[in-house]
Simulated scan of single mutants.
Amino acid sequence: MHLFRLDTSIFPANSTSSELADAAEAEWTAAHPEGTVTRRHLGAEPLPGDTWTHATLAGFVPAEQHTDEHRAASALAATLADELRAADAAVIAVPLYNWGVSQHFKTWVDVVIANAGPSDQLLKDKPVVLVTSLGGGFAPGTPREGWDHSTPYLERILRDVWGADLTVVRRELTLAGVNPAMESLRDLAAEYHTQALDAARDAGKNLVRA
């Protein structure tokens, strides 16, 4: 069995999304001690910013006219797409940054699509856990309702474009512990933390059952 694990936090040492992803992964590895895990951490090792441009343009240029940049970008794009094709299950951890999707994740998606195209369901019917963490509160009725422009995009790509059997684990108010303006929300944030860890473990068990 083969698990693909993707992280995108720019704070790998104390990442909430990675903590939750660890909890989900632990359930899978406990059930598959001989399984393999392919890891890619886009926050710690971002893809080169021009990879998508070169990989895309390579598709419009005859192979004999490819530059070194075209060839390198195309090879990387093929590797990224193959990592998804080879997986039996996946855990994807993506925090919300500035009310939108992580630029590291967006670049990765674009590069994968440069190789696979927009209609290749790379994760067709595969169990995937999406972990997302949000510094503030975005629930219905809150002042920032509707400001989360990341989660809908993540779900669209993983479930609708790539065909994943998707489970979403979401934790809000992650900044309550460090932001004085959110001090009154710290008890609620602690509840959310506990609930999200439980949800991540359950999602990991679902990976195993699937």
Rank of each mutant, 00 (worst) to 15 (best):
A78E: 14
D165Y: 06
L96N: 14
N179F: 01
E155A: 06
T56L: 03
G43Q: 13
V178T: 00
Y97K: 10
H104L: 07
D165K: 08
A181W: 00
F60S: 13
G49K: 02
T167A: 07
L188C: 03
D148M: 04
H32N: 08
H104W: 09
A190P: 05
N179E: 01
Q103K: 10
H149K: 04
I92A: 07
A81W: 04
H70T: 06
G59H: 15
K106W: 04
V94P: 09
P180A: 02
A196M: 14
V101M: 15
D82M: 07
A72R: 10
D160P: 08
R159C: 04
R144S: 02
D202F: 05
L3P: 04
L84N: 02
H32W: 03
D198S: 14
T194Q: 07
T8D: 09
S150H: 09
E69I: 07
H70Q: 03
A116K: 13
E145I: 06
F11M: 04
N98I: 07
K106M: 11
L80H: 08
A26Q: 14
T36Y: 03
P118L: 11
V37T: 15
D120T: 12
K124S: 13
T8L: 05
N206P: 04
D22H: 08
K124Y: 13
R171S: 00
E45K: 12
T167C: 03
E172D: 01
I157A: 02
T67I: 03
T53L: 15
L20N: 12
A90Y: 04
P118M: 14
A164D: 01
E191P: 01
V94F: 08
Q65D: 13
T51I: 00
Q103S: 15
L158G: 02
D120V: 13
D187L: 03
I113F: 14
A90N: 06
A203L: 11
Y153K: 02
E19I: 05
E155T: 11
V168C: 10
S133A: 15
T151P: 05
A30E: 03
G49D: 02
V109N: 12
R171G: 00
V37N: 05
A72G: 06
R201T: 14
L175F: 00
H70D: 10
E27I: 08
I10K: 00
I113W: 07
G177S: 02
W147S: 12
N179Y: 00
